[in-house]
Computed example of a mutant assay.
Amino acid sequence: MAAPMVLSVSVVIISIVAYGIHDLLTNFENNGCEMTYMFEFPEYQKIDIGEVEEKYRNYALHIYGEGVYANRIRTLQLNGIPVLFIPGNSGSHKQVRSLGSVALRMAERQGVKVHFNYFVVDINEELSGLYGGVLKRQTEFVHLCLQKILSFYKNAKHPPSSVVIVGHSMGGIVARGLFTLPDFDPAVVNTIITQATPHQKPVVSFDDDLHHYYQRVNQYWRSEGGQAALRHVTVVSTGGGHRDVQVRYALTRLDGIVADDRAISASTTSIPKSWVSTDHRCS
């Protein structure tokens, strides 16, 4: 009698656990991550980057604008705070729209004098999460873009000396990879915000280039020399929660990579004042 009873209890327990796992993974609202409504047409104004454009013909640098603001920035005589968005694996440069538009509307609504100028790199929607051979080239291009961006503020009343970087997914790795370039000035970047970026290691490692890029970047950030050169850099990393099935939260943490006093790691599970949960795209 004991054996059938143990078997029955085991089946019940396994069934409950299986149902709980199924409910956790499937019991949520559909999240299409649709773009918000706009009453002004978004513009991604391409910027001439000079002679290097021939070398990086598949890449481009844009500045985001809409409405009257888009007309105002055409001369590229800027006086705001520069922000550069780096898309990730197969990411589009048009992803910057939600960040750029919200930042613009908040500045206009609150009537503040400080505003952000959002730039974005178009890296041809390359599969940087699967093939590491493109990461070094993307990093070098972003470096050139940072220099170009700061040149637009020479006539500003208070010209900035650094650029805020926002990286989605693999774009966050490219942002940290900048500091490994031999001719990169670390003072150009003091704030990096990453969204669903696998900092610890690649989600999948199909080739040596991807592995070696990660190894080089993380070794530098963990080294004593890197820690000294990066003392002024703050890194914020947010993960997409349990619904991000592409990059699990553990990979987005900065433990052991960035010093605790300069690192913030968080998991975003929902969007405030809405009924929408987050995933890899909405992180």
Score class of each variant (00 low, 15 high):
I257R: 07
P182M: 01
T194I: 10
V188G: 00
L144S: 05
C145S: 14
G225C: 05
S223P: 05
R243S: 01
G167R: 02
G226I: 13
G225N: 15
N190L: 01
G225I: 06
G256T: 12
R248S: 07
L144V: 10
V203P: 00
P202F: 07
D207Q: 12
T197I: 07
A229K: 15
N218D: 13
G171Q: 07
F179C: 01
Y249K: 09
P160W: 06
V174E: 01
R176K: 10
V236A: 05
I165L: 15
L178W: 00
A263R: 05
I192F: 06
T234V: 12
P160T: 07
K154G: 09
S205A: 15
L146E: 06
I192A: 06
Q147N: 13
L210T: 06
S169M: 04
K154T: 13
C145Y: 04
A263L: 06
G240Y: 00
V163T: 03
G167W: 03
V188R: 14
K154D: 11
Y249E: 11
D255F: 08
Q246F: 09
D244E: 10
R253T: 11
V174Y: 01
S169A: 14
F152T: 04
K154E: 13
T238S: 08
R248Y: 08
N190P: 03
G167T: 09
P182D: 12
G172K: 03
P159K: 08
A175S: 12
M170I: 02
L144E: 13
N155H: 12
G240W: 00
P198L: 11
D261E: 15
A229C: 08
V203G: 01
R243H: 13
I264Q: 10
T180V: 14
T252K: 04
D260I: 12
L178Q: 00
D209N: 10
T238L: 15
R243K: 09
P159V: 09
H211S: 10
S237Q: 14
D260A: 14
L144A: 07
I257Y: 11
D244C: 11
H199N: 14
E224S: 14
V188S: 14
S223K: 10
D255Y: 13
T234N: 12
N190S: 14
G177M: 02
H232Q: 13
Q219A: 15
K157I: 04
E224R: 08
G225P: 03
Q147A: 07
R176F: 08
T238G: 02
H242W: 11
V235F: 03
Q195H: 09
Q227S: 12
T238C: 12
Y153G: 01
V233N: 02
V247C: 11
L178H: 00
V217I: 15
Q219I: 04
H242D: 02
H242P: 04
D261R: 05
S151H: 05
